[in-house]
Design a protein around this nucleic acid. Structure first.
Lengths: 155, 155
DNA sequence: TATTGTTATACTCTATAACTATA
DNA sequence: TATAGTTATAGAGTATAACAATA
């Protein structure tokens, strides 16, 4: 199983797959680009005294309509029991409110407070700033990239 | 500050920026694509009884040459004090070894064991599988995407 | 004096399981 | 019985600060 020797790409980067397909190579580059921005996102959360998860929660909430806890758990890819604590801390800071639901008294709806909505807006603006690697591309490349990604994601 | 109304894109997705530039929109799509794979990566780590951080550590180590703890801390975007515990657990499972450095007795070099290298190889292969959104693109789109990303990242 | 890695501390995230109050 | 959310628990990640050994 270890007899399939690494190819040149492996040796050059130390973190690539062997004989990648075209889509596989594109995915590897996308993953690298996204990971390269992790530090920026962590620093952004820190700047607002939020943990990355708390920032993700604010980002996942809808400024227009309350959202059930269970939906937030899904958006954050974590267990419902974790959401309790994450929301507790956001609520203690006055960024989020728990409300009752209309037709099922078991579910709790999460709504952003006014300040929560403001913070979310600033965070969203900062997160959406493209990394230099993309901002520095020629305009034609930027458009082609956007169009291909729109097709890929059905956006 | 909240008087700048959301645009149509905002209302459609609930998580976009206002009047995004072309590069900004491309970045938003890339970020969405990467985030959509988070669950897959967590499940992959779980499948090997690793935490996501432990999987990241294995992935960041060089199968060919030992790496200092400090370099791993940098690759994982975390404090050096965290690396101690992460490496402790990997070493306890026989996936990583601590060795002394040649010319500075303060630094500890991290080397993959044979099993660690095997696990790392399997993980790398699985992580590099492109998501369906990319695999389903026409071949011409895949090539164009790869070529633009190569230019962006200087790869 | 400065640096590498460790330890100590405190807090957050994480999953599992047991519990409640509804349905 | 089943579901939404909470609580309890234990393990892991996180940053800060203090420390030992070495440079």
């Amino acid at each position: 199983m270890s007899s399939l020797a690494s190819n040149i790409s492996d040796m050059a980067t130390g973190a690539q797959t062997r004989s990648p397909t075209v889509a596989g190579e594109a995915w590897g580059l996308i993953h690298r680009l996204a990971m390269s921005q992790k530090g920026r996102f962590v620093a952004l959360a820190h700047e607002f005294d939020l943990t990355p998860m708390q920032m993700g929660a604010l980002n996942s909430l809808d400024p227009g309509a309350p959202v059930p806890m269970s939906e937030l758990a899904g958006a954050l890819h974590c267990d419902a029991s974790n959401v309790t604590g994450i929301v507790d801390r956001l609520e203690a800071r006055g960024l989020v409110e728990r409300r009752g639901a209309e037709h099922d008294r078991r579910v709790r709806m999460l709504a952003l407070t006014e300040e929560g909505a403001r913070v979310r807006e600033v965070l969203a603006a900062r997160m959406s700033e493209p990394p230099p690697a993309l901002a520095g591309l020629p305009a034609a490349d930027q458009r082609a990239l956007r169009d291909i990604l729109r097709r890929a994601l059905g956006a």
